[in-house]
Design a protein around this nucleic acid. Structure first.
Lengths: 136, 136
DNA sequence: CTGTATCCAGGGGGATACTG
DNA sequence: CAGTATCCCCCTGGATACAG
């Protein structure tokens, strides 16, 4: 990790920052992680996901699933019956991604309250600098 | 984990998805993770960060740092000397966030090639559906 | 050096209507 | 059911200029 060169200057290798981009391009959007998370218990159908990921629009669910499929995170299986039936499932790689993001979710759950505190404290502090009205 | 209620229906608790949002609101943007990462070895000054996080503009660095500060991820320390000197440092919570995101970065490094493969394969597959010209 | 203010382009993403 | 197509708003984020 980090090639731990303690004595060296700050920069680290530029390529590393570049690679971090790859993750963000996949999961750094508004919905991908939520979809991945909702696939953790096995295959789900389009409408099931639409209901599970509250607030997502049909369009964004399609876009997100296409992106995840293109990146090899989920598979799309069409059962050609009537009515149409399409199921999505995490690939092997998708499962590992889901596992890699788990600590982040746990972190979120563990620090929610503290984050709220920090926000309140910050807002209270900056309220004394009335750049504009603190209302609204 | 997931409160492992194996036999229950898919939905999980809606609140969980809601909480996932909190993480994404903090790190799901274009720069936050890169800034956090560049603070892993201790305090950094504004200009140091600007150089380290290649491609970031002054504005976005300021915006990102303010957000991280508000969320209790970094501290901002002003040394009132001439010339001005401001240093940023991960809070205790910031350090744990950085640790929580480490698996994600490792995942990225480990799966980069595989992701490229998946993309190439997908693009090859969809090339047979010529909605528009595959060129450019 | 460390910002803030302003302008502006691009795209993310919502609402709606239509299709196989 | 599972999308696609279209319209359009607004926010992100870059460039530039200015300030303490």
């Amino acid at each position: 990790m980090d090639a731990g060169l303690g004595g060296l200057p700050p920069a680290a290798s530029p390529g590393d920052a570049c690679r971090t981009r790859v993750v963000l391009d996949i999961v750094g959007d508004k919905w991908s992680l939520l979809v991945v998370r909702n696939l953790r218990h096995g295959p789900r159908r389009f409408t099931e996901l639409k209901r599970a990921v509250e607030g997502i629009s049909q369009r964004m669910l399609t876009v997100t699933l296409r992106s995840l499929e293109r990146n090899g995170i989920v598979t799309r299986t069409v059962h050609d019956v009537m009515p149409p039936h399409v199921s999505y499932e995490l690939t092997e790689m998708g499962v590992t991604l889901r596992e890699a993001t788990a600590p982040l979710l746990e972190w979120s759950l563990a620090h929610l309250a503290r984050i709220d505190d920090a926000r309140a404290a910050y807002d209270a502090r900056t309220a004394s600098s009335p750049v504009s009205s603190p209302v609204s």
